[in-house]
């Protein structure tokens, strides 16, 4: 394996949790709900998946538990913002704080436990293609799923009736309601989906990426996922690209150090964040203001208002 291939592989695995979490949030936001609780749901996903995987000695059960935990957290959020029409920014933040705390309680007994690596799945034939073979066809299942999920969500949003419903609710919930569309029900499902994805991303971190659990291990990745959704202008295809660019920025700054350029490491560490701001800026320069943001994003929905 060449160095270049190896670096690309590392980038793909570093980007995958960001992509999965961001995809979920994208669907939630497309329905018009802003959930800032991604970090908390992700932390819960990581803790619960690891606890379950160790207890039952099964990665599959762990993954399911992680998604369940994320979805349960999302359901709590949905209760507050849909049921009580509470402020979404505040509630999302509360969810993050709550999730970080609760995940600490759940994970504590599992500190020090470890899991064996999840073997990469080799697609016979394809993985023998020179260069791109190893890169594209010898990854773990999560990587394949994240790419598949991107395509499915893109198709769902643009090609299906239900996807159109979701989008029109996100664009303008008042007129969608007037048309008889079930605003709250669709949003509820979208929030749950977002939670399950965040939980899955957490499970990936705990079960594949680090293979042990530690407090605060999500380390701000939920926030990056939120940034990526805006960066991608709420489009799944761009999300894939954005996640890989961000992953590349984080990994390449480490390579820049190893290559001994002599630039202060803090400058290199700041590159991914500055790059995100720059990307957001360039994007809006090209497309004009607030590209692609769903019209009703973040506004509570109350009928007859």
């Amino acid at each position: 394996m060449t160095t270049f291939e190896a670096i690309l592989l590392t980038i793909v695995t570093a980007s995958t949790p960001l992509l999965i979490a961001a995809l979920g949030e994208l669907v939630t936001e497309r329905s018009g709900v802003l959930n800032l609780g991604v970090e908390g749901m992700m932390a819960m996903g990581a803790a619960c998946s690891f606890a379950a995987a160790v207890t039952f000695d099964s990665t599959l059960i762990g993954v399911m538990a992680g998604m369940m935990a994320g979805a349960l957290m999302a359901a709590l959020f949905a209760l507050v913002v849909l049921g009580f029409a509470a402020n979404q920014v505040g509630s999302g933040l509360a969810l993050t704080i709550f999730g970080l705390g609760l995940s600490g309680l759940i994970g504590a007994p599992f500190v020090g436990a470890r899991r064996d690596p999840v073997p990469p799945v080799d697609i016979p034939g394809l993985s023998d293609i020179p260069f791109i073979g190893r890169l594209f066809f010898e990854q773990d299942l999560f990587v394949y799923s994240s790419v598949a999920l991107t395509i499915l969500i893109a198709l769902y949003l643009t090609r299906t009736r239900s996807g159109l419903t979701l989008r029109s609710i996100g664009e303008n919930h008042t007129s969608a309601n007037a048309l008889g569309l079930p605003v709250l029900r669709v949003r509820f499902v979208a929030i749950l989906f977002g939670g399950a994805c965040a939980g899955l991303a957490g499970a990936y971190l705990a079960l594949v990426y680090t293979r042990f659990w530690s407090p605060g291990m999500t380390a701000g990745r939920g926030w990056i996922a939120l940034a990526l959704v805006v960066f991608a202008a709420w489009r799944p295809g761009w999300l894939l690209i954005g996640a890989y660019i961000f992953g590349a920025a984080t990994v390449l700054q480490l390579h820049a150090q190893a290559a001994q350029f002599g630039v202060p490491s803090q400058v290199l560490s700041a590159v991914p964040y500055l790059a995100t701001i720059l990307a957001l800026l360039l994007l809006s320069l090209r497309h004009g203001r607030a590209v692609g943001a769903p019209g009703s994003l973040g506004a509570p929905f109350v009928p007859d208002r």
Binding site: T3, A6, I7, T10, A14, L205, Y209, T210, F212, S214, M217, A219, R221, T250, V251, L254, H255, Q257, A258, A259, Q260, S265, Q266, S269
Partner: peptide, 26 residues
């Protein structure tokens, strides 16, 4: 010797990335 600064005492994923970057460099 090649040195990479993770700029953290404790962030498992970031430390892992730093290690992988070094391993990728041979």
């Amino acid at each position: 010797i090649k040195v990479v600064w993770a700029n953290t005492w404790y962030d498992p994923a970031k430390e892992g990335d730093a290690a992988k970057a070094l391993l990728d460099q041979g």
